[in-house]
């Protein structure tokens, strides 16, 4: 018997939501776009994509979205990439801004410079299957992690893919690479959290 497809939402306030949804669907998830707080209740898990975190915050201030999302990320599996990682962090600098605090890390925004400093790197990670391509776009940097954080990939000394229980976060964009391993890992987390 095939297990039921997990219902995974992609927060679609703005940003790279389409590519995430496509990848999740390819891997067998029931993917949907989330633009309103009422849509969260039916989901098993959520992806918070890259985009502009300040824009996300503006939208979340409306219609009680922030509170509902805050409850969701503290109880269900969540995967945040780039701006999504910033939103999940406990502390955000450069400049300071509010965040959901579900992931015990500190993040510095635009830490590697502007678009001209965006880059694609390839490195060995904790994921089996050889080097992983990592696309960094105006990327943030994880500057502090707590003991409860598992580091799955690094760029120099800085963690770039981290996990804390059922929360996964990357400062790079796995949705812009063909390699499905990071999304597959998230699906495994989601499946094991399902009743």
């Amino acid at each position: 018997m095939t297990p039921p497809s997990p219902a995974i939402g992609v927060l679609a306030l703005q940003g790279a939501f389409e590519v995430h949804a496509r990848r999740l669907a390819e891997l067998g998830a029931d993917a949907s776009l989330v633009r309103k707080p009422g849509q969260l209740a039916a989901l098993d898990a959520l992806v918070i994509p890259g985009g502009e975190s300040t824009t996300f915050l503006k939208h979340l201030e409306r219609a009680g979205f922030y509170g509902v999302l805050n409850e969701f990320v503290h109880s269900k599996p969540v995967f945040g990439t780039c701006a999504g990682c910033i939103l999940l962090a406990r502390e955000v600098t450069n400049p300071h801004q509010s965040s959901l605090g579900a992931l015990d890390i500190a993040v510095e925004r635009n830490a590697y410079g502007r678009q001209n400093d965006s880059t694609i790197l390839s490195a060995e990670t904790a994921l089996p299957g050889g080097p992983l391509e990592m696309v960094f776009i105006r990327s943030p940097r994880i500057t502090r992690i707590s003991d409860s954080i598992q580091v799955l990939a690094k760029r120099g000394d800085s963690p770039v893919l981290v996990r804390q229980g059922q929360i996964l976060a990357s400062t790079f964009h796995p949705e812009l690479s063909h390699d499905p391993r990071v999304h597959q890992l998230f699906l495994n987390i989601v499946r094991s959290a399902m009743p």
């Binding site: 679609a12 306030l13 703005q14 940003g15 790279a16 939501f17 389409e18 590519v19 890259g50 985009g51 502009e52 824009t55 780039c82 701006a83 678009q115 001209n116 965006s118 880059t119 694609i120 696309v135 776009i137 105006r138 964009h173 812009l176």
Partner: peptide, 27 residues
């Protein structure tokens, strides 16, 4: 070569460029 000592092959460059455009969608 953009003249600032940094080089990309053109497909890498284009992926980074459209990657940023992707982040601006819906805004």
């Amino acid at each position: 070569n953009n003249g600032f000592g940094k080089q990309h092959d053109s497909s890498t460059g284009l992926r980074l460029k459209t990657g940023l455009a992707e982040m601006l969608k819906g805004g």
